[in-house]
Design a protein around this nucleic acid. Sequence first.
DNA 1: CGAGGTCTTGAAGACGATCAACAAACGTGG
DNA 2: CCACGTTTGTTGATCGTCTTCAAGACCTCG
Lengths: 240, 240
Amino acid sequence: MHQNPLIRNLEYRDHLSEEERELLDAGLTRVRTIAAGTDIVCEGDRPSESCLVLSGLSVRYNLMNDGSRQISAFHIPGDFVDLHSLLLGKMDHNVGAITEATVAFVPHTYLREIAAAHPHLGRMLWLSTLIDAAMHRRWIVAAGRLDAAGRVAHFLCEVFERMRVVGLTEGMAFRLPISQSVLGDAMGLSLVHVNRTIQKLRSLGLIRWQTDVVEIVDWNGLQEISEFDPDYLNLKKVPR
Amino acid sequence: MHQNPLIRNLEYRDHLSEEERELLDAGLTRVRTIAAGTDIVCEGDRPSESCLVLSGLSVRYNLMNDGSRQISAFHIPGDFVDLHSLLLGKMDHNVGAITEATVAFVPHTYLREIAAAHPHLGRMLWLSTLIDAAMHRRWIVAAGRLDAAGRVAHFLCEVFERMRVVGLTEGMAFRLPISQSVLGDAMGLSLVHVNRTIQKLRSLGLIRWQTDVVEIVDWNGLQEISEFDPDYLNLKKVPR
DNA sequence: CGAGGTCTTGAAGACGATCAACAAACGTGG
DNA sequence: CCACGTTTGTTGATCGTCTTCAAGACCTCG
C-alpha cells in the first residue's frame, strides 16, 4: 500500500522494482492544489509537463460550438491525466478539476529520461495510456449500444473498480462528489434524463446514491444491464 | 514516399532515421492475406504478435448480448491495429477485416526489443497508440454531442485526412468500400437512419458517395456541421 | 436466372431532449 | 443564526430524433 497512488495503480498491473518506484516518486516535485471547477490544462496548450492526480476528481472534456460540454474521461487519484501530452504536441481537449484536487506536474524531460533509461518503466507509463484507450473504447461501445440506464450503470461499475484499486472504496460504496449535470456531460445525456435514469437504477434496487456516496446494492444486476466486464481495465498483475 | 505505410504514417509525425526505418521494415516478415469479413484477432485472445494493416480496411468491434455490434475504430493501411496487445494481456475486443486485407504480424518480442534499444522508435510506437486514443476521444465527443449528420460528417472528415496521409486520396475523393450497415455499427446508428443521413449530406451538397467512392464536395460545410478540427490527428512533423 | 446482399422508402413507436417550474440543499454575508 | 441567493435535484408536459418493422428496388455473382 504505497503513498503515491500512481505506484499503487501500476503495481496492480505489474511488479515495480525499488528503483522504479523511487524514480516515480522523485518526479513528484511540483505539487499543486487546484480549486474545484478550475481548468488544469486547456485546449491549445503545449504543456511541458504531464499532470498526475494525487487526490480529487478531474475530467477531460471538449466544449462544443453551442456551449455544451462532452466529457471523454474521468480521472481519479493515481491517474496520469495527460501523460499523452508527452508525445502529442497541442492539447486537443481540456482537463478540469471537478472537486478540489492536488496534482503533481512531472516534467516531460524527466519522463523521457526515465522511459529511455528504464525500458520496463517506460512500458508501464505506456501501459497506463493504453488502459486509458481501452476505457475510451468501452465508452464508445456504451454510448453506441446501451440505453441511458446501461450507460450510467457501466460508468458506475467502471468507477467502482478503479476506485477499489486505489483504495477509495468502503465495501460496496464510494464517494462520488459529482453533480448529475456533470454525469450528463459524461454520458451524453441531458440533466433531466440523468436524473430519471438514476431514479430508475434506484427503484430497480441496483444502487443507492445519496449526497456524495454511491452504494452498489446489486453488483450482478448492474453488470448485467451494462454488460460490464472488467477485463478491459487490466487488473491482473502480470509481467508487461 | 515509402513502401511500408507504417513508416509513411510515422514519418508524417516525426523524422525517422535510416536505422529506425530498417528496424520497422525488418519486423514485417509474416505477412498474410485476410478474407473480407474474417476476424483477425478475437476477444479473449492473448496475441504474441501485433498486426499492422498493409492494405485493406479493418475495424475493432465488440458484440453486445443482443447480437448487435459496435465498432470502436476504423483502420486503414499504415495502422498498427492491435499494437496495444503488446502490453495489454487479453484482447477485450475483436479485430475484423471489412475488405480483403493484407496484414503483417510483428512479434511482441521484437517490438519490445526495438523499443527498449531505440527509445525514440519506442516513443514513435507509443505515439501511434496515443493518436488512436485521441481518435477514440473524438468519437466519444461526436457520439455524445453531435446528431447523426454531424457524426457521419465527422467520420468522413477523419477518414479523409487519414487516407490523405498514406496517399489513398485522389483530390477530394477516396475509396471507402463499406456498407451502410457497417457505418451504422460504427456510428451507433441504425442502418435505416444511416441511409437517410447520407441522403441528407448529399442533398446538402456536402458529399457525393456512389458505389465505393466518397467525394467531398464541400469540405468547409462538412467541417462545420461536424465541428471537425484535424489537430487531434497530430499531422505535424515535430520531434517527439 | 435466381439468390443474397445492399440500398431505399414509408409508417409507427420509443427514447431521450427541451421547456418550465418548483423543492431541497448549501454557502455566504448580514 | 437566520435570510437570501445559488446550485442541485425533482417532476410534468411536449417535441424531435432515431429505432423498429415492413416491403420493394437494385445490383452483383454464382
